[in-house]
Design a protein around this nucleic acid. Sequence first.
DNA 1: AAACAACCGTACCGTACGTTACGGTACGGC
DNA 2: GCCGTACCGTAACGTACGGTACGGTTGTTT
Lengths: 219, 219
Amino acid sequence: MSAVESGAGEWTERQRDVLDAALRLIVEGRPLTMTSLASAASCSKETIYKWFGDRAGLLTATVRHQASRVRGTPLPEGRATRDALEASLHRFAVEWLTVLGGQTSVALNRLAVAHAGTDRAADLGAIVLNNGPLAMEARLVPMLEAGRLAGILDFDAGDAETAARSFFGLVVRDVQIRLLLGDPLSLSPAEIERDAGRATRQFFTLFAGGQHRSTGGDS
Amino acid sequence: MSAVESGAGEWTERQRDVLDAALRLIVEGRPLTMTSLASAASCSKETIYKWFGDRAGLLTATVRHQASRVRGTPLPEGRATRDALEASLHRFAVEWLTVLGGQTSVALNRLAVAHAGTDRAADLGAIVLNNGPLAMEARLVPMLEAGRLAGILDFDAGDAETAARSFFGLVVRDVQIRLLLGDPLSLSPAEIERDAGRATRQFFTLFAGGQHRSTGGDS
DNA sequence: AAACAACCGTACCGTACGTTACGGTACGGC
DNA sequence: GCCGTACCGTAACGTACGGTACGGTTGTTT
């Protein structure tokens, strides 16, 4: 409880080293115990407890630490044209699939999913959620809304979130859950490129302006 | 090692009671320890070990036990018409979202995801995978292929799996991962019905025969 | 009735791990 | 030189839990 407690502040370089070591243990599948972390980071357990309080605090700090550097590349906010929007969506999909397929994402999502079922204290699930699907939506919605206002996309006002979630589905499909369940999925850059292209094309088929009725209606 | 060992066989009614008790513990978020299970199921730990070998065996038996009764409703294999196929896909989507949103599915997927990261012995991930996304695909592909042969759907031969996974994405979107991460998503029957309808309509927009070029090509 | 099997309940063992305590070292301030 | 602070390394404590052993009860067979 020196400089930061649980919220926004940053960590010392040395503290960040320890968090990176914890991350490395998680990603490499080795058990993350206080002893193993102390050994891996060449620090003492007492120090870890002093810095992070307890194991839950350590885990949240680790997840936050990783989340703090996954901010995607800022999207170019130029004049919206069909080609520019398509390129942005494509790049977005590539970036997203690349992140999802990475060892770090898989490991952290596993950790968060596991703890979402048991613990009540450490809200790892909420952290990952906010830096995962919800962050993607938050970045996507303004793009789609701009596309709608420019007449490139066609969906009802206020349905940008729905469209964003459909795009998510077209991009991710069953890839993430299969990876989390241990499916040895490959996801080479070439495949990611191809899948991103397919998803983007499908998205424009669904939501391109002026080609068909809105898909947001009820049955 | 009386009647069954680890593979296909069934369990005694009493044994199934124990597995159900284990399932109940998992679903209700209470810790599943051998002692707690013995207490909850009113049986002795020694009996549990005799029946299921060890904890890993118990978990796999539990997951298998649940998986053995989630077989979806058999799809009507009549003459393929556009309306019949749409109705089948719609029903499929409703069923799938209902299962995914259930406490049991969330709890078991969490368990399997957690173990996919650590254990090497118990392949819970593989079991859930085979009874989850892969089972859905296996049921979906013949339907889509029949639709393609009847001229209702349009995708390249052999791309039924790709189409099925796109359908999966349109139906599930980010719902499953958000649920697994603890997002308090509601998923009322009305919402499921609406989402299934939207996904089915979107799928036909993408893959209806003779309306546009195939979307399966490369860039 | 005796023998046996299946099972329950519980005491017990070994170990892994979170957490704490403590001795030892390096360093800046006075 | 001395004190306080920060840290390392490690021993020690308490607990939870997987796994085992054993006595007691019930039901079945001979």
